[in-house]
């Protein structure tokens, strides 16, 4: 669940950057893109909604300990 919470923005980034790859010489139909973006966007919102519900039910303070980064305190 926690991993999913971390994964979701990555998924979103992928979805939002995907059209940059497509189309001949970076040109594509605006109407198509428009529909694509809003569908992807809405899908992400729905996933975030489901995730937030799950996380809230499990308790925000989640037992997971935050991963320690660079704990050597250099």
């Amino acid at each position: 669940m926690m991993d999913l919470a971390r994964l979701l923005p990555v998924l979103g980034l992928f979805a939002f950057m995907l059209p940059l790859l497509g189309g001949p010489e970076g040109i594509s139909r605006t109407a198509t893109n428009l529909v694509y973006f809003f569908l992807a966007w809405f899908g992400l919102i729905v996933m975030a909604w489901a995730l937030a519900r799950r996380l809230s039910r499990e308790g925000l303070d989640g037992e997971e300990g935050e991963v320690r980064e660079g704990g050597d305190g250099r």
């Binding site: 926690m2 919470a5 971390r6 979701l8 923005p9 990555v10 979103g12 980034l13 939002f16 605006t30 893109n33 428009l34 973006f37 966007w41 992400l44 919102i45 996933m47 975030a48 995730l51 996380l55």
Partner: peptide
Amino acid sequence: LEFVTIYLGPTLVLIGWWV
């Protein structure tokens, strides 16, 4: 379409709120 990037950034941060 480029205007949409101004909203996509915040969307990514918000759905990644856990991080």
